[in-house]
């Protein structure tokens, strides 16, 4: 079931285009990564999907609610964790949470117990009466996450949720994200932390003003323009044969493994056919995989802003 549907979503501020023609979908219980360099339009996209900004053109629905429709209903369904925790420093952790419970009309004993449960889980137990200004950066971030969960949102937008957290706290947050997704919540994660994205996200969109790529992490890693072949005999000989049959494709050999970089106009079947023609026996041919970070850097360097 689709929780988020984005169709041709665009946003312009005066003459500047922040986001252009975005298209993607996110399903129930899915953790969806939104990757892109600073200024790529990730935050603008999240703000449009949470009803904080109106799209200039195109549209989107979140939990079936149009983002330029009933803002109140939309904001009841979504939770937002901003990069800056945005807590009231003079107020205690309890008062900060109670304020948002009141806004959501949930300032009840059971709701507070639920909030306390989250606090316990994030290591904030017993700190209910401490002013937020006295909390460490990591604790503030975790408290902001608790705040985003208070009204049981179906969709959570998390902007750099583990930024500034120590490894243990970051793991707690990651575990919580995975568990929330397991409960059926949809999570959109904006992050620069590639290992975190690889670990948590089912699918990823790379944006830089416009959508550069979208797919699962393995799909994106395979978008490398190279093929790895398992050949019979020395791979170096196969490489030399390839030079004669299909010139201009750089290759490297390691034992029986041959890695061929595809030049423009050449696809994997062309390489396989050329090698077979020269009499090379091929046991396996798979698209080469690269680190997500390399794919991300290649996409964002190549992707011109609109």
């Amino acid at each position: 079931m689709r929780r988020i549907e984005v169709r041709g979503l665009s946003k312009r501020f005066g003459g500047r285009t922040a986001v252009e023609d975005l298209d993607f979908e996110v399903g129930e219980g899915e953790v969806f990564g939104l990757l892109g360099p600073n200024g790529a339009g990730k935050t603008t996209t999240v703000r449009m999907l949470t009803g904080l900004l109106r799209p200039t053109s195109g549209g989107a629905t979140v939990c079936g609610v149009s983002v330029d429709g009933d803002g109140e209903l939309l904001r009841q369904r979504v939770g937002l964790l901003t990069e800056q925790p945005g807590l009231y420093d003079r107020l205690t952790t309890r008062e900060n949470l109670r304020f948002f419970l009141k806004l959501h009309h949930r300032d009840t004993a059971p709701a507070w117990e639920e909030a306390r449960g989250w606090m316990e889980r994030f290591g904030l137990g017993g700190r209910e009466n401490e002013p937020c200004g006295a909390l460490s950066k990591g604790m503030r971030q975790k408290l902001a996450l608790v705040r985003a969960l208070l009204h049981r949102p179906e969709v959570l937008f998390l902007d750099e949720p583990t930024s500034g957290l120590d490894p243990e706290a970051a793991r707690t947050v990651r575990d919580a994200v995975a568990e929330l997704a397991g409960e059926g919540r949809t999570i959109v994660l904006c992050s620069h932390n590639m290992s975190e994205v690889e670990r948590l996200c089912g699918r990823v969109a790379v944006v830089k003003g416009r959508l550069l790529a979208v797919g699962t992490v393995p799909e994106l890693r395979r978008q490398s323009g190279a093929v790895e072949l398992q050949v019979q005999g020395a791979a170096a000989n196969a490489g030399l044969a390839l030079d004669r049959a299909l010139p201009g494709c750089p290759w490297s050999a390691d034992g029986h493994r041959l890695r061929v970089t595809l030049r423009e106009g050449v696809e994997i079947p062309d390489v396989v056919a050329a090698l077979v023609q020269t009499g090379v026996r091929i046991h396996a041919a798979v698209p080469a995989q690269r680190a997500l970070e390399d794919v991300y850097l290649e996409l964002t360097r190549a992707g011109a802003e609109p």
Partner: peptide, 14 residues
């Protein structure tokens, strides 16, 4: 100044 505005505006508050 305290960067509390965005979470506040993301709540159902007119």
């Amino acid at each position: 100044e305290r960067r509390t505005l965005e979470p506040l505006l993301a709540a159902p508050l007119g």
